[in-house]
Amino acid sequence: MELLRDLTLILLATTIVGHYSTRIGIPAVIGQLVVGVLMGPAVLGWLHLTHDLESFAEIGVIVLMFIAGLESDLQLLKRYLKPSVLVAIMGVLIPVAGTYLVGIFYHLNVTESMFLSVIFAATSVSISVEVLKEMNALNSREGTTILGAAVVDDVLAVVILSVLVSTTGTAVADGAAASSSLLLTTLEQIIYFAAIYFVVRWVAPYLVKIGNRLMVPMGATLMAVILCFGMAYVAELVGLSNVVGAFFAGIAISQTSAKSTVDRHIEPIGYALFIPVFFVSIGLNMDFKGLGNQIGFIVVLTIVAVLTKQLGAGLGAKLAGFHWGSSMAVGAGMVSRGEMALIIAQIGYQAKLMSPVRYSAIVAAIIVATLLAPFLLRFYMDRVRKGQVDKSKVRPAE
Rank of each mutant, 00 (worst) to 15 (best):
E2T: 05
E2C: 03
L3G: 01
R5W: 13
T8S: 15
L12S: 11
T14P: 03
T15N: 01
I16A: 01
I16S: 02
S21T: 08
T22S: 13
G25Q: 01
I26F: 08
G31H: 02
L33T: 00
G40C: 03
G40D: 00
H48K: 11
H51R: 14
L53I: 07
L53E: 02
A57R: 03
G60K: 05
G60P: 12
V63P: 00
V63K: 08
M65G: 08
G69E: 03
S72P: 04
Q75S: 13
L77C: 14
P83I: 09
S84G: 07
A88P: 11
I89D: 11
M90C: 15
V92F: 09
V96T: 04
G98A: 07
V102D: 04
V102C: 04
F105V: 12
L108R: 08
L108Y: 10
E112K: 03
F115S: 05
I119D: 10
F120A: 01
F120G: 03
S126L: 14
I127T: 14
M135H: 00
A137Q: 15
S140Q: 06
R141F: 02
T144W: 09
L147T: 07
D154F: 03
A157E: 00
A157G: 14
I160Y: 00
L161Q: 01
V165D: 02
V165R: 10
S166M: 02
D174H: 14
A177C: 13
L182K: 09
L183H: 09
L184A: 09
L184F: 08
T185K: 15
E188D: 13
Q189N: 04
F193M: 09
Y197H: 05
W202T: 02
L207D: 02
G211N: 11
G211C: 09
L214A: 06
V216R: 06
M223I: 04
V225P: 06
I226D: 05
A235S: 15
S241Q: 10
G245T: 10
A246H: 07
G250Q: 07
A252L: 06
T256F: 01
I269R: 08
Y271D: 09
F274N: 07
V280W: 03
I282M: 03
I298H: 06
I298N: 11
L301E: 03
L301R: 06
L311F: 13
L311C: 11
G312R: 06
A313D: 04
L315H: 14
A317G: 00
K318L: 12
L319N: 01
F322G: 05
A329C: 14
V330I: 12
M334S: 12
R337H: 11
M340F: 14
A341H: 04
I343D: 00
I344R: 01
Q346A: 15
Q350S: 13
S355H: 12
S355K: 04
R358S: 11
Y359I: 11
S360H: 15
A365Q: 05
T370I: 03
L371Q: 01
L372A: 15
P374I: 07
F379S: 09
M381G: 03
V384N: 12
R385S: 13
K386P: 13
V389D: 12
R395K: 15
E398K: 10
